[in-house]
Each structure stands twice: as C-alpha cells, then as structure tokens.
Simulated assay, not measured.
Amino acid sequence: MAKRKRLTPAQPSYLSAAPESKSALGAPLATASAAPPSPIAPIAQVASDAAAQAALSELSAVLEKARADGRLIERIGLEQIDEAHLVRDRLEQDEDEMAALMASLRARGQQIPIEVVQLEDRPDGKTHGLISGWRRLSALKRLYAETSEPELATIKALVIQPASARDAYVAMVEENEIRVNLSHYERARIAVRALREGVYPNQKMALQGLFANATRAKRSKVGSFVALVEALDAVLMFPVAINEKLGLALVREITRDSGFTDQLISHLRAGRRDTPVGELRILSAAVSEAEKAALTRQSEPENVEPLAAGPRIREPLPAKDERINTQLAPGLRLGYTPGQHRIELSGAAVDERLIQELRHWLSQR
C-alpha cells in the first residue's frame, strides 16, 4: 500500500503578520518569518505632502499679511535704521527724560516697538527708515555705546508700509503727540518742513492733515507759530524755550511791521545767547521795544486826508496766514506767503542761469 504524503498548513505570514513568539520568560523573540511593515500607499504620501505645502503657504501668507499691516514685530540692527528718513519734529531732547527712559530700558527691556519703513537700494547700507520712536532708538543707541551688550545692538520694530508721505508724517506726529507733547514751535516747524517737501499743497492742508485730532484752537496757535518758524528758524538757537505768550507776541510784531524781523535778527546775531535765558531776554526786549514804538505812533496825530468825491471801494486783501505752494515746472517749486512779503523758489532747477534770468526780468519791469 502506497504511503501518503503528509501536508503541512499554509504559512500564516502569507496572509497576515505572524504572531510574536515568546520566550519562556514572556519576552518576544525575533523570528526570521516576521513580516516587514507595510509601506504607505503613494496616494496617501502625495496627499500628506500637499497638505503640508498648503499649511506652509497659508502660514507664509499670514506672516506677510501681518508684516504688511504692521503687526509683526521684528528685530533690526541699530546701524541699519536711518533716523533722518523723515524730517524730525523734535528739535531737542530733555536729558532727565532720556535718562529715565534709558533706566527703564536697562531694567525692563524695550516694551513698545518703534515704527520703520523698508528701504531699498541704499548706498549707505541702511535697510529701514525711522517713522516713529526716535527717543527709544536714541536711548538704545546710547546704552549700546556704553555697554556694548549684544542684546542692545538690535531694536524691536514694526515694519509698516505708509500709503503716502503724508501718512508717514502723520504717524510720526501722532506718536509724539500721544507720548510726549511737543512745543508749538516744533509743531509749526514740522508743518513748514512738510509743506516745503511738497507733502501738502498749502499751509491749511498741512495743519489739518498733521494735527487732525487737535482742537481748532490748538491748530490756530500752531498756524500762528508758522510765521515765527519761517522768519527766525535759521537764527534761533533755543526755539523750544519760547513759550506761547512770547511766541504769539513775536508773531504779532512780525506780521505788523515788515522791518521787525530784520532788526530782531540783527539783535540776535549781535547779542550773547549761549543759554536759553539769554536768547529769551533778547526776544522779550525786542517785543517790548516794538510795542512801545507802536504806542508812540498811535498817540501822534495823524494827517487827515480830504474825502474823495466818489465812493471808496474796498479792495480785497490777501490772506496773510495762507501760504501758497505750487509746482511751476519740473524741479521748480514756488512758495509765497502774502503776509510775509516773501517769495521762495526751490528745487533742482534753481541754478545760476535761473538767477541771471530772474535778475534780467526784474530789471526790465
């Protein structure tokens, strides 16, 4: 009788993972028949990569949106910031306030970021221009110069993108108005400089744009100080020390007497004014002298002219406090203030040839 061949069962590993063999102590034993882990399906891998890429793109878009909106705080090297990117409204810094700010930065670090705008293709290597935060930047620069600590070599900043030069100037002015009040002279000076830079077409729009949140009375006082800035900014050494009462008195005399400005400039240049007190003494004396002269003229009898036969027609007077600023030609801008009897020409087109042509034209009038 033929001997039957005994059949063995199929290997379990062909259909499923083999059960782990255990030693007598219960520890699993490695067997040669253990199946390798099954690979991830290609479609699942593609879906995973696509999801990761989408998440990364979304995160990048969120960061770019935050940076564009000025909500992303970055650390920027102190040497990379151009603090003269805008004409600053602050003329001087109180040393006691600066010392207090430096002590706070040293003890608690920088709590409030500055605002900067990104610059491109600057030959000096500056990458950002300062919009607001000049005091914090100055204080950190002093601290870094004193200590050379690496953590003080950078500053926290919000990189903003102003829609126009007007927005940049308004951001600077509002930041200083909120934190530390400026003098009327400093406010008027930034309005004058913004007007000369062509940011605003006239003085009224400059005051309304830069000080939109100020009261009408405050804007009026700042507008009065504009005449003082235009007349004496080149010669004054301590203009911030001029208080409101003295400033308005100076403006009154400047607009009333066309020769007052020249006389005052002569007194300032000849006088001793190495301190604010010395300069204020010269200014106050000039105002007192002008007021006495005005009273003397009022007390003298005036020659009465005979009445004309016909009715007198009153001619309209130009607004004395309204400055006109227009672009005459490429590179040539004209500024005119009727109350100051002054015409200013500025721009790249102002050269020797233009001066000669103006002289010839004026001589033929």
Rank of each mutant, 00 (worst) to 15 (best):
D233N: 14
V235F: 06
L236Y: 11
F238M: 07
P239I: 04
A241W: 05
I242M: 08
I242T: 06
K245G: 07
L250M: 10
V251Y: 06
R252N: 09
R252A: 13
I254K: 02
I254Q: 04
T255I: 10
D262M: 05
Q263S: 10
Q263V: 04
Q263K: 12
S266Q: 11
S266I: 12
L268T: 02
L268N: 01
R269K: 13
R269F: 05
A270G: 15
A270Y: 03
G271T: 03
D274N: 10
T275L: 01
P276T: 04
P276L: 11
G278M: 07
R281Q: 12
R281L: 02
A286E: 02
K292R: 13
A293R: 15
R297M: 02
Q298E: 14
S299T: 03
P301S: 05
N303A: 12
E305Y: 06
A308F: 09
A308R: 09
P311D: 15
R312N: 03
R312K: 13
I313G: 06
R314P: 02
A319L: 14
E322S: 06
A329H: 12
P330N: 12
P330F: 10
P330C: 08
G331S: 10
G331R: 09
L334W: 05
L334M: 15
G335P: 01
T337D: 14
P338R: 09
G339H: 04
Q340S: 12
H341E: 11
R342K: 15
L345E: 10
G347Q: 14
A348H: 13
A349N: 07
A349G: 04
E357R: 13
L358Y: 07
R359N: 15
H360T: 12
W361S: 14
W361P: 00
